[in-house]
Nucleic acid binder design. Sequence first.
DNA 1: CAGTAAACGAGACGGTACGTCCCGTCTTATG
DNA 2: CATAAGACGGGACGTACCGTCTCGTTTACTG
Lengths: 192, 192, 192, 192
Amino acid sequence: MAVAGNSDGRVERSKAAVLAETYRQLTLSGLGGVSVDEVARNSGVAKTTIYRHWPSRSALLIDACSRMGGPQPAPDTGSVRTDLLALATAVAEQLWTAAWPSVLPSIIDAAERDPDIADMFAQLHQGNMAPFREVVARGRERGELRPDTVVDDVVTAVMAPLFYRRWFAKERVDDAFVHATVDHAIRSAQQT
Amino acid sequence: MAVAGNSDGRVERSKAAVLAETYRQLTLSGLGGVSVDEVARNSGVAKTTIYRHWPSRSALLIDACSRMGGPQPAPDTGSVRTDLLALATAVAEQLWTAAWPSVLPSIIDAAERDPDIADMFAQLHQGNMAPFREVVARGRERGELRPDTVVDDVVTAVMAPLFYRRWFAKERVDDAFVHATVDHAIRSAQQT
Amino acid sequence: MAVAGNSDGRVERSKAAVLAETYRQLTLSGLGGVSVDEVARNSGVAKTTIYRHWPSRSALLIDACSRMGGPQPAPDTGSVRTDLLALATAVAEQLWTAAWPSVLPSIIDAAERDPDIADMFAQLHQGNMAPFREVVARGRERGELRPDTVVDDVVTAVMAPLFYRRWFAKERVDDAFVHATVDHAIRSAQQT
Amino acid sequence: MAVAGNSDGRVERSKAAVLAETYRQLTLSGLGGVSVDEVARNSGVAKTTIYRHWPSRSALLIDACSRMGGPQPAPDTGSVRTDLLALATAVAEQLWTAAWPSVLPSIIDAAERDPDIADMFAQLHQGNMAPFREVVARGRERGELRPDTVVDDVVTAVMAPLFYRRWFAKERVDDAFVHATVDHAIRSAQQT
DNA sequence: CAGTAAACGAGACGGTACGTCCCGTCTTATG
DNA sequence: CATAAGACGGGACGTACCGTCTCGTTTACTG
C-alpha cells in the first residue's frame, strides 16, 4: 500500500535540500532575500517541487524559520540567579555572533502584516523563551521569588534590554550589563 | 545672483507628493512593500522624476523614513518621574496606535545589511530618544538621580520593555506596566 | 526519450504571435519603429517570454526580417529573356505594392553598423536573388549567353535600375522600362 | 528697428554648433543614432535652444542632412564619355570612403514614412545628380547622343549599378566596372 | 546711459522603451 | 505519483531619450 508515501525517500530529500538552502539564504539576507528561483537553482530541486510541498513562498519561509534557534536546555543549579545568568549570557553571546538573530527583524516585520507568520513567530519565540520561564517558575516554587511573581514579567525584564541593545542601541552588551540586568530583574520579584 | 533659487516650486511639489505616497505605502507594507512604480502611479510624479531626486529606491526609503516620528518636545515638570511617565506613556500609546511603529522592524531588518540604512536608523532613533535623554540628564543635575547615572542606561530601562512587549510579546502594555517600568528604572539610578 | 520534444505547443504559439506582430510593426515603421513593449502588448505575449526566445531586440528583428520576402520559384521557359522578364516584372510589381520593400532601407541602414544584421541581409538578399541567378546560369549553359558571362553582373544589370527607381527616383517603373532593362542586360552578355 | 536681428551672432553660433555636432553623430550612427540630448551635451547648446531653432528632432535632422554632400562641379571636357567617367569615378570613390553615404540608407528609410524627409531627400539627390544631368544634356546637344535621349535614363544607367553594389552586393567596384557601366549607358543612348 | 527684448543655460517634468530579475502557475516527460 | 525542466504572464527595477515647461542670466539694440 505504502499509504503514507514516505517509503519513497525523495520527498524527504527534496524538503531537506530546500530547507537547507532556504536557511542559508535566510541567514545571509533575511526573509526578503530569499528567492524561490534561487533556492531551486542552488538546491537542485525544481521550483515545481517546491511549490508542491509549500503552497507559497511565505509558507516555505515560515517552515524554514520555525526550525531556527533550536531549544536551549534549561539549567538547574538550584539558584534562579545562576540559572538566569547562564541562560542570559548564552543568549547575549548568540545575539551578537550567531547567524539567526539577524533574521529576526525581518520575521517580526513580516509578522506585522501576515498573521500566519505572526503565529509562527509567537510559537518560535515561545520555544526560545521556554527555558527562561522554566527557570523562573522553579525559583518561584523554591521560594526565591515572591509567590505572586508573574513569570513573563521577569523574563521580559531579563530579555528586553538585551534585544534593545542588539537592535536599537548598537552597543554590544558585556558581562557586567548582563549581570546587572539579571540582578535587577530578580530584585523586582523579591521586593516586598 | 541667487543662483540656487528654489523659485520654481515644482521640485518641492514633486518631492512632497512622492514622500507622502512613499510614507503611505511604508505604513501599509513596510520598507519591502514600497514600489517605485507604484509610488509614481499614485503620486502623479513620473518615475523618471523620482530617480532624478533620489538616486535609488533605497535612498528614497531612507529619506522617507528619516522624516517619520516627529520629535516629541521634552516636558519639564521638575520631576524626573513625572517627565518620564509622560514621555513613556505617549510612546506606549503610539507604539500600539500610530502607523509608523509598524515600519520599524523592516527598517531594523534593512539596517542589518545596509550601512546607509543603519546610519539613518541610528539618527532617527537618536532623535526619538532625545527627549528621554534630556529629561534624565535634567533629573541627574537636579540631584534626583545619582551623579554617576549613565543616561542611556536609564533610557534603555524605560524603553526596552515597551519595545519588547510591542514586538516579542504581543500583549499591549497598560498604564500600570508603564508606571512599574518607569519606577523601576528610576529606582536603579537612585539606589546607593 | 524524445528529450527535445516540442510537444508543448506554447513555444511555437508564442514565437508565431511575436513574429507576426513584429512583422506588422516592421512594415508599418521599419526596424526602428519596432518596440518590444508594443510587440508584447499587441501579441499577448509577455515581454519576459519574448526575451526568453530572443536575446535582444536586435535578434528579434533579425529573425523577423529573415522570414520576409519568401523565395520566388525560378521559371524555366527555355528562354533567358522570358524567364528574366517574368522575374523582373514580379519584383517590380512587389517593389511598389508589397509591404516588405519599405523595410529594406532600415535593414540596410542597420547593416551599415551591425555586422549581424549585415549577415542576415546578405543571406536574405542572396535568397531573393537566387531565382535570377539560376535563370541566368541556365541561359549561359544553353548558349544563349556568352560562356564567360558573369552571372552576378547580369543580375545586377537587371535589378539595379529597379531598386534605383524605387528609392532614388520616386517614379514607378512600367513594363516598357522593365523590358528595356532586361533586353539591355541580356545584350551585354551576348555581344562579342 | 534691427528687424533682421542677425546682428546678434549668438543664433548663428548656436545653429552652427548644433548642426556640426548633429552631422558628427549622423555620420557615426545614421539618422537613428542622433540624440537631441547628446547633441545638446556635446555642442554646449542647451536643449531648449535647439528646440527653439528646430521644431522637432526630425526638422533638425532634415536641416543637417540637406547640407550633406556638397555639389560637385560638372566637368566639361567636350566628351560625354570622359565627363561621365570622371563623375562616376568620383562618386564610386566616395561611396566607399566618405562618411556621408553611410547615412543615406537611414534617410531613405525615414523618407519611406515621412513626406518632409522624402522631399528633403529628393532635393538632396537632385542636387547630387545635377552634374550628371548637365553633362548628359550637353552631350545630347553636341550630337554625341541621340536627340531623343532621356537624360534621366542615362543617369540611372550610370548610377544604379554603383548604388546597388554599395548596398546590395557588398563588393566594391573597381575602375573596370565603372568604365563598363559608363560605356554601357552611353551605348544605349547612341544605338539606333 | 538706463531700459527692454530676444537668445540663452540649466534643468525639472511626464512619458515610453529598454533588458533583467523575481513570483506563482502551467505543461510535459522521466523515474 | 514525485520529480526535473522549463514556458508563461505579470510586475518591478534603474536608465536613456523625447519634447515641454519654467526660470534667471547674458547680450545687444533702443530711447
